[in-house]
């Protein structure tokens, strides 16, 4: 559990981060979202003390981050940044091994960990281990950057706009990969972005920052349906609001007995996907499939009713 306790950062009398308090549960993704200059990156960088807080403190599993030297603290916290920051003169394997090397792991243990992580990120170890970063695609570089941040099994992974430099298609895949890997490893992640879509897609909890203050911290559904301030509402967007809400609900929630014509949706798809299918093909219901077997249908009316109900 990460406890952020009234943390404040002042630059020349201006409060970049103003007394932020929040708690992050172990094994969850918290996305900090805000416009540029909202203090979201400063907040993140105070957690591994790349910026020293002016006041307040952070506790990781009950222990204050001020109790250890900054470089020792940082070796326990993964850090992935926009543009990956890979070392151009080291191979993929040495890049991933950077923190384990700092922690003096044995060579065998490091090698096994590197191969394990490459496999986890769908990169064949034999092919990629000895390549240099310049010989990788942008998506591969980004994956190696995240693998490096996870190498020493850190208590916490901090990510600062990790997908900012990727094109939209690769970005979506990278987000799905991160979700999958986080669920597999049970990692605790704090991620900073300016993209509300990304926050909704990845966050178990979303924290909205505005002018140095934490204005709302809750589940994506809460942020959408009960925005705390006008700023939060404008970040969500009035037009996108119903669609964002539907994208959070799986089809399985509304599946009912009955049949429907046309191409089926998987049970894991979102109501937004189902709505899109209805609109595009002019159907009033779409069949739902699980493990290749039709298990029922979702109707256009049910979707419309669900979008009306604000929990």
């Amino acid at each position: 559990m990460i406890e952020i306790d009234r943390i404040t950062k002042t630059y020349n009398g201006v409060r970049a981060v103003d007394s932020v308090t929040m708690t992050v549960e172990t094994g969850t993704i918290t996305v900090i979202v805000g416009t540029s200059g909202s203090g979201k990156t400063t907040l993140l960088r105070m957690i591994n003390r790349l910026e020293e807080p002016s006041s307040g403190e952070v506790r990781i599993n009950g222990e204050s981050t001020l109790a250890v030297k900054p470089h020792i603290l940082r070796r326990r916290i993964g850090y992935a940044i926009q543009g990956h920051g890979l070392f151009p003169h080291h191979t993929v394997a040495r890049n991933i091994a950077a923190v384990p090397e700092l922690l003096n792991w044995s060579a065998d243990k490091i090698r096994a960990r590197v191969d394990e992580l490459l496999t986890l990120f769908s990169m064949e170890p034999a092919t990629f281990r000895d390549r240099y970063p310049a010989a990788l695609s942008g998506g591969q570089q980004q994956r190696v950057g995240v693998a490096r941040a996870l190498a020493s099994r850190p208590d916490l992974l901090l990510m600062d706009e990790p997908f900012g430099a990727l094109d939209p298609v690769i970005r979506t895949r990278a987000q799905e990969d991160l979700r999958r890997i986080q669920q597999q490893l049970g990692s605790t992640i704090m991620l900073v972005t300016h993209d509300m879509e990304e926050a909704m897609r990845l966050g178990d909890r979303v924290a909205v920052m505005d002018a140095g203050r934490l204005v709302q911290h809750g589940t994506p559904a809460e942020i959408i349906t009960r925005p705390a301030t006008d700023f939060v509402a404008s970040m969500v967007g009035e037009v996108e609001r119903p669609l964002r809400l539907l994208s959070l609900v799986p089809v399985s929630d509304l599946v009912e007995a009955g049949t429907a014509e046309g191409e089926a949706l998987q049970v894991g798809a979102s109501l937004r996907d189902a709505l899109s299918a209805c609109l595009w093909t002019g159907r009033s219901a779409v069949p739902v499939e699980q493990d290749g077997r039709r298990v029922g249908r979702v109707t256009f009316d049910a979707i419309r009713a669900r979008a009306r109900v604000h929990p």
């Binding site: 790349l50 603290l73 940082r74 543009g83 920051g85 070392f87 151009p88 700092l102």
Partner: peptide, 25 residues
């Protein structure tokens, strides 16, 4: 590259380790 230096700081390299492992080579 500035991003590599930032990453080196963020992963817990001391200034000496940054010099020897990243900046000098």
């Amino acid at each position: 590259p500035p991003a590599a230096i930032e990453a080196a700081r963020g992963m817990g390299m001391t200034p000496g380790q940054r010099l020897v492992r990243v900046e000098l080579p």
